[in-house]
Nucleic acid binder design. Structure first.
Length: 476
RNA sequence: GGUGGCGUAGCCAAGUGGUAAGGCCAGAGUCUGCAAAACUCUUAUUCGUCGGUUCGAUUCCGACCGCCACCUCCA
């Protein structure tokens, strides 16, 4: 299994530090607003990485933080006339709600910055003791020139960082590259006690402290949006590695931006689509399919056309799976050797699909390629479904199992879609109507027949007349 | 100015030093009382442009053109 490591800028074999448990830290959102589709992409990729590792037999511990104190939160709270704490809490809850609606499983730990102040203070103190930080007017700065490897993640040299930089240089800092780990409190701001006076943590220190607390000094995979590569992740490395003398994260994964109209979807651009709004318009699986239709390191453009394409693709997948479902768990009846020979191509297609899926996902989680494998099998199954009818049930059952298993890793098939108490009665009523309609049809009473079809359609139930009689499905 | 990335059919998107997965759309067909839906089939001699290396390049190298991102908060 290979992962592209941003640190080495190449594909590397994935070998977890502890074979018993893979540790993953994912940079979560700053909760001053609802999350948008770009945030969703990162969260979804992390979710699928985790699901796939589990599928491959690993145990995984995933930690995803929430930044619940920073300038944006303070400013937004002031605008709204609520406390920063309250605003962060509300948006934190909304974040969990939205994530869940996208089918993202909860992380094992969702640490919050404000609940780890002691750990951060301790880490900062360690760095001060090592001469890697200094205090000015109650704020603590990291001394970048103490860390020889600074810039190793982003490939930036000290001179690069100065020339043409758009940073407003704080004259008090020893070096323009130095960054704050602890911010002295301004009047009226939320603040915590510290050895350097009242204040609050800087952005980068929280991830260092929380990742190390929950996953140890060295973690396997650290993931986040590509915008975090510099300075956020670079600074996390500087803080953590200087403090512990150990490698902070072994594999760095950076998820490319979601774009809209060809430009980055971002909060500062005010061009974002909220995840919850998208979820109001499209099913979970459609949005997931869209977000994984391109490889995670490639930009993806959000637009209604692309979502419509995913809807079409999902329809194709669901039709196939629905047709296959009736063979689910079919007893392993031994097909006649004759049939066995005839279904050999399908049996091989199933095996091929599974190995192609694994190969694709093994190569840096290539979801686009994995989808290709899945849809290739869908075509094979559809052809076989027409050819073999029900006689090849065991093979169809196998196809169903493999397809649901792989689609389950990607989260693009909702097996329990209609798991509802009223379903049975509804089904019986519709069956009754179809019965009546069939009688009308045999009398060539097309008026009655069509009336039943049309009226059901008004109720979003669509009839399809097939060779084996009428079937129906719910449309939206 | 520095750093990184991208440019594959009408659209989206994989991929490989040996001749282009998959999806959407479109066209044709099957089915049907008519439909709808579904399914099947068809759709890039070609991978931004120009050079180079090679028996052979879309894939490697160079130049150029176009687009994007990071260097300030943003996943």
């Amino acid at each position: 299994m290979k992962i592209y490591n941003s640190l080495s800028r190449q594909l590397e074999d994935f070998v977890p530090l502890n074979p018993e448990q893979v540790s993953i830290y994912s940079c979560g959102p700053t909760v001053y607003d609802y999350i948008h589709m770009g945030n969703a992409r990162t969260a979804l990729v992390t979710d699928i990485v985790r699901r796939y590792l589990v599928y491959r037999g690993y145990k995984v511990k995933l930690v995803q933080n929430l930044t619940d104190i920073d300038d944006k939160i303070i400013n937004r709270a002031a605008e709204l006339g609520v406390s920063a704490k309250q605003l962060a809490h509300q948006n934190g809850e909304a974040f969990f709600e939205d994530s869940q609606r996208l089918g993202i499983h909860c992380a094992d730990v969702h640490p919050k910055a404000t609940e780890h102040i002691p750990e951060m203070i301790s880490l900062i103190q360690t760095l001060i003791d090592k001469g890697a930080a200094y205090v000015i007017d109650g704020s603590v700065y990291y001394r970048v020139n103490q860390f020889a490897e600074y810039g190793k993640l982003s490939g930036r040299k000290p001179e690069d960082l100065l020339a043409g930089a758009r940073v407003e240089v704080d004259e008090r800092k020893e070096d323009p590259r130095d960054f704050d780990m602890w911010k002295a409190a301004k009047p009226g701001e939320p603040a915590w006690e510290s050895p350097w006076g009242k204040g609050r943590p800087g952005w980068h220190i929280e991830c260092s402290a929380m990742a190390m607390k929950h996953l140890g000094e060295t973690i396997d995979i650290h993931a986040g949006g590509e915008d975090l590569l510099f300075p956020h992740h670079e600074n996390e490395i500087a803080q953590s590695e200087l403090a512990t003398g150990r490698t902070f994260a072994r594999y760095w994964m950076h998820i490319a931006f979601l774009k809209i109209d060809g430009r980055r979807m971002g909060k500062s651009e005010h061009n974002f689509i909220l995840l919850r709004d998208a979820l109001d318009h499209y099913p979970t699986e459609v949005i997931r399919h869209f977000l994984i239709s391109a490889h995670y390191r490639h930009p993806l453009d959000y637009n209604p056309e692309s979502l419509a394409k995913s809807e079409g693709a999902l329809r194709r997948l669901n039709n196939c799976l629905d047709a296959l479902k009736k063979y689910e768990g079919g007893k392993d009846g031994v097909p006649s050797s004759n049939l066995d020979r005839e279904t050999l191509p399908l049996q091989e297609a199933i095996q091929t699909m599974k190995s192609r899926f694994v190969e694709a996902m093994d190569t840096d989680f290539n979801t686009a390629q994995a989808l290709g494998a899945i849809f290739t099998l869908v075509g094979e199954v559809n052809r076989s479904l027409a050819t073999f009818d029900g006689a090849a049930a065991p093979v169809f059952a196998r196809a169903y199992q493999v397809l649901t298993e792989t689609c389950g890793v990607l989260g693009i098939y909702d097996m329990d879609a209609e798991d509802d108490n009223n379903v049975e009665q509804r089904d019986q009523l519709i069956a009754l109507l179809l019965d009546v309609r069939q009688e009308a049809r045999s009398r060539k009473d097309w008026d009655t027949s069509d009336k039943i079809r049309d009226r059901l359609k008004e109720l979003n139930i669509e009839i399809q007349d097939t060779r084996d009689g009428a079937t129906w499905k719910i449309i939206s």
